[in-house]
Simulated scan of single mutants.
Amino acid sequence: MDLHSILVSTGIVTLAEMGDKTQLLAFLLAAKYKKSVPIILGILFATILNHGLAGILGVWITQILSPEILRWVLGLSFIAMALWTLVPDKIEDEEASFGVKSGVFITTLVTFFLAEMGDKTQVATIAMAAHYPSPILVVIGTTLGMMIADVPAVFLGNSFAKQLPLKLIHTIAAFIFLIMGVLVLLKIDQIF
């Protein structure tokens, strides 16, 4: 088993998820429903589905692009992720209010799946699945990263979020994405 790809993808997504709209969604759902287990299960299954599809897309990209073009796409994608990570997220009202009559699990599953579409952690999963030899391990890592960031949000609520040094966390995540991008472009990406 390649623990390296799991550890890197877990770490990057954990940092990128801090203050992300899906983490904010976890805070809102926990405050609204006060039912931790169905919210956590909804987050888990939505993430597995969403990041699983992202992993498949990452594999597909590696099959259609030449290695040289793929290197440039990946390197520039990681650099773009670095910049995107510095932009604070906010939750949109329609994402937070979906499925009021659907039950807590289904509401969480659907809202998280939709909120993650095109989100930076999904894009990061695509890039890392294209970069590492085992996209399944990347999806395991990115899912674990989402859970590490979002489960405490479910239990601790908004008061905890206000105490996190989000700017510092985003800066660290952006720096890691930037380094990964530069290393890929310079063909020195064995570190990550």
Results as ranks from 00 to 15, higher is better:
A30L: 04
G11E: 07
Q190L: 15
M18C: 06
S9L: 01
T85V: 14
F45V: 14
A161T: 13
H51D: 04
V182A: 13
I64M: 02
F175K: 05
I40D: 05
L114I: 07
V184T: 12
A115M: 09
V184S: 07
K120A: 06
T111G: 10
P67R: 03
T47P: 15
P133W: 09
G141Q: 01
A153T: 07
A173V: 02
L164F: 06
A82Y: 01
V123P: 01
Y33L: 11
E68K: 12
I169E: 00
P88R: 04
P88N: 02
K162T: 10
V138P: 00
I126Y: 07
V100D: 15
V100S: 15
P152C: 03
T10C: 07
M1I: 10
Y33C: 08
T62G: 02
L29D: 07
L41H: 06
L83E: 15
L29C: 08
T10M: 11
K167M: 10
T121A: 14
M18Y: 02
V13P: 00
L44G: 06
F113I: 03
G55I: 09
I176A: 11
A174C: 09
L70K: 08
T121D: 09
I79W: 12
G52T: 03
F192Y: 09
P67D: 05
A153M: 08
I91L: 15
G52L: 11
S5D: 09
A129P: 03
I56A: 12
F113R: 08
K120F: 03
A149P: 14
T85S: 09
L183K: 14
A174T: 10
H51M: 10
I12P: 00
L28M: 15
L114Q: 13
L156V: 03
L15C: 01
V37E: 09
L183V: 09
A124Q: 05
M117A: 15
V110G: 12
I172T: 07
F98E: 11
V13D: 02
I69L: 14
V182Q: 07
A80H: 07
L70N: 10
G58Q: 02
P152G: 03
L74D: 05
W84R: 04
V13Y: 02
V59S: 13
V37W: 12
I172Q: 02
D119K: 08
K120L: 08
G157I: 09
L185C: 04
P88W: 01
M128N: 01
I126D: 05
S102C: 10
A46R: 11
I172S: 03
L114V: 06
L86V: 13
L25W: 10
A115D: 11
F105I: 12
I140S: 01
L44A: 14
T142H: 04
G99Y: 03
F177G: 00
V151N: 07
K101L: 10
I91Y: 08
V73P: 02
V104G: 09
A96R: 14
W72V: 12
W72M: 14
F112D: 05
G19F: 00
G58D: 01
A80N: 14
L156Y: 08
